[in-house]
Measured scan of single mutants.
Amino acid sequence: DFYRCHTCNTTDRNAICVNCIKKCHQGHDVEFIRHDRFFCDCGAGT
């Protein structure tokens, strides 16, 4: 499962994972996106 962060203006080409929300995007306006054509390269392994 992935998310888009409207606060940081993520686009259709990138998304964030749950670990990104916990570490970098906590309290931001995020939108849940189940699956799409992207991956998270944060290195958290999710």
Rank of each mutant, 00 (worst) to 15 (best):
D12W: 03
K22P: 03
T7R: 02
R13K: 09
D12G: 12
F32L: 15
T46L: 15
V30E: 02
C40A: 00
T11W: 04
N19V: 07
D29Q: 14
F32C: 14
T46G: 04
Q26Y: 04
H28Q: 03
F38K: 13
D1C: 00
G45E: 03
R34I: 09
C5R: 02
C40Y: 05
R13G: 14
I16S: 05
I21C: 05
N14D: 13
C8S: 03
T46W: 04
T11I: 12
I33D: 05
C5K: 05
I16Y: 05
E31D: 08
N9R: 13
K23G: 06
E31K: 06
C8T: 00
C20K: 05
C40V: 01
G43L: 09
D1P: 14
N14T: 09
V30P: 03
Q26R: 13
C42D: 03
T46A: 08
F32D: 09
E31W: 02
C17R: 01
R4L: 11
G43W: 06
E31N: 10
V30F: 09
R4W: 08
D36G: 12
D12C: 07
D36E: 10
E31P: 02
C8I: 00
C5W: 00
F32G: 14
C40I: 00
D1N: 15
N14Q: 13
Q26M: 10
A15G: 06
C5L: 00
G43E: 12
I33W: 13
T10P: 13
G27Y: 00
H6G: 09
N14C: 11
F39E: 15
Y3R: 01
V18G: 11
R4G: 04
C8F: 00
H6R: 13
F38W: 13
C5T: 02
Q26K: 15
T10R: 12
A44R: 13
C5Q: 00
T46I: 13
T7H: 00
H6Y: 07
D29T: 08
F38T: 10
F2Y: 12
G43N: 06
I16K: 08
R13Y: 04
R13D: 09
C5E: 03
T11R: 09
C40S: 05
F38C: 15
Y3G: 10
K23N: 10
H6T: 11
K22Q: 15
D29H: 12
Y3L: 06
G43C: 08
E31I: 05
C24V: 14
V30Q: 02
F38R: 14
T46F: 04
T46N: 04
K23E: 15
R34N: 05
V18H: 15
R37I: 10
Q26F: 08
C40M: 03
N14P: 08
A15D: 02
C40Q: 04
N19S: 08
V18T: 14
H6V: 11
H28I: 01
A44E: 09
E31L: 03
A44V: 11
A44M: 11
G27C: 06
R4N: 07
K22S: 14
G43F: 07
F2P: 08
R13N: 12
D41L: 12
A44Q: 10
C17Q: 01
H35L: 14
K22W: 09
N19C: 04
D41K: 12
Q26A: 00
T10E: 11
H28S: 01
Q26D: 15
F2R: 05
H35K: 15
I16R: 06
K23R: 12
R13C: 14
E31S: 10
A15M: 14
N19L: 07
C24F: 09
V18Q: 15
D36V: 13
N14S: 07
C20A: 01
Y3S: 05
T10V: 10
I33N: 01
R37M: 12
H35F: 13
H28Y: 00
R4A: 06
F39W: 09
G45A: 10
H28R: 02
R13H: 12
V30W: 07
V18W: 13
G27H: 05
